[in-house]
Simulated assay, not measured.
Amino acid sequence: MENNNHDESEELDPITDIVDYLVRCAKVSFKNAHIDQKEIRTRDKIQMACDLFRQSPTDFLLQFGKYLAPNHIEYFEKYEPECSNNGYHDCIKELKQYHTDEARHKRVRNRRYNALKKLQDESDYFSEKQMMYRSPLLYEQLVGQYLTEAERKERDGVDTENLTFLNLILETVDRNQMRETKNEQMLEEDLESMDLNKAQKSDDSDDDEQFKRQQWGEFDTPCKQVSFKPKVQSTQTISAPERQLLKEEFFQEMYCSFVEGRDDIDYTTIDNDEQYDDLQQVSQDAEDRYFDSEPNDSENLEEHMKLVSEYGRKNSTGSNSEDPLDLFMKHLNKRQVET
């Protein structure tokens, strides 16, 4: 009878649901001690996590805290371990900061930026050709229409060294998909233009109606000035520096599209991947938060930095305290202002 009551109390304990979330939803990995060991079963993972929590709530949070849902933090705030220490409460503070919307937004943008750099180094995702496939209309407006015939042939040339029947088929599929994408983008642009014209006509009709109602001698307000869009320069009149500037603008727009989450890819594989964290910046942020808080005596600092280290701090070169993505976005904004 006592055992049944004990089992019921465990089932009602929120930590059981939290652990279940970690294993089934967050899909936290449990590394095996031996390579040849069989895959750990789900119920064994749950048991391991529960045992760790009972042994040391602080170690539990250090290992799984990053994968918790934000609403789980309230449970740990109210929970008071038998052997309470500063480490547990400092860990709660770190996790509350880690799970704020602001921190997550910054973390996601930084991870996407680091993923962008990795893709630039290790793949052709940000090659001119691949970006042309993804955004053919913008490419044609900023780059394509200013290319010479020789440059077009070089861009569209087939890699004869690695030419295979499969590569030829894939190239054909990519180009057909690009044409469809371009047609869709042109249609979307035309619809936006039509909506803009309708809105403009509606404003003009309102102005005409107001004009008719005015009496002679009441034209104190000058008429609205008609704005004209400048004509697009032709290939013959645009200079080489201007062509390069437009090409850079296209590249920057594609970078922004990736960082802002507008590309047609699975962003969860990036946003939830810690390998894209800037560990130097993470450590710097943790130190800054500590020195902005009170009190901050040397004993607390030592304990705090131990927690930061256990969260994944590693030695790395460089001392740039400014967020690298912020620098990148400042550069883009600067270029947009200049153009």
Rank of each mutant, 00 (worst) to 15 (best):
D190T: 11
L196N: 11
P295E: 05
Q275N: 07
Q37P: 00
P295I: 07
K106Q: 14
K31G: 03
R335V: 14
S56K: 09
K229H: 08
K129W: 07
E80Y: 03
N110Y: 03
N3V: 12
E102C: 00
L187G: 06
D326L: 11
H304E: 03
D204H: 10
T172L: 07
D208C: 02
S234Q: 12
D288K: 09
V158M: 08
Q233H: 06
W216C: 03
E322M: 08
E102D: 10
Y88D: 01
S123T: 15
L12N: 15
Y311F: 14
S316G: 08
L22M: 08
R109L: 12
L301M: 05
T16M: 04
Q141F: 01
P14T: 14
H34I: 13
R107F: 01
V232I: 15
P295L: 03
L187C: 06
A26G: 04
P70A: 02
I73H: 05
T237Q: 14
Q244S: 09
S9K: 15
Q210R: 11
R155C: 00
D278P: 01
F64D: 01
E2P: 02
S239E: 08
Q55L: 13
V308E: 02
K93Q: 07
L166Q: 09
Q200R: 15
V232A: 09
S205Q: 13
S283P: 00
E8Y: 12
D44H: 11
N167S: 11
R104T: 14
E294I: 10
Q244P: 00
Y79N: 01
D44V: 14
Q236G: 01
G144N: 04
A150C: 03
D277C: 03
K38T: 14
M131E: 04
I265Q: 04
E242M: 13
D208G: 00
Q185G: 09
K212L: 14
K314G: 01
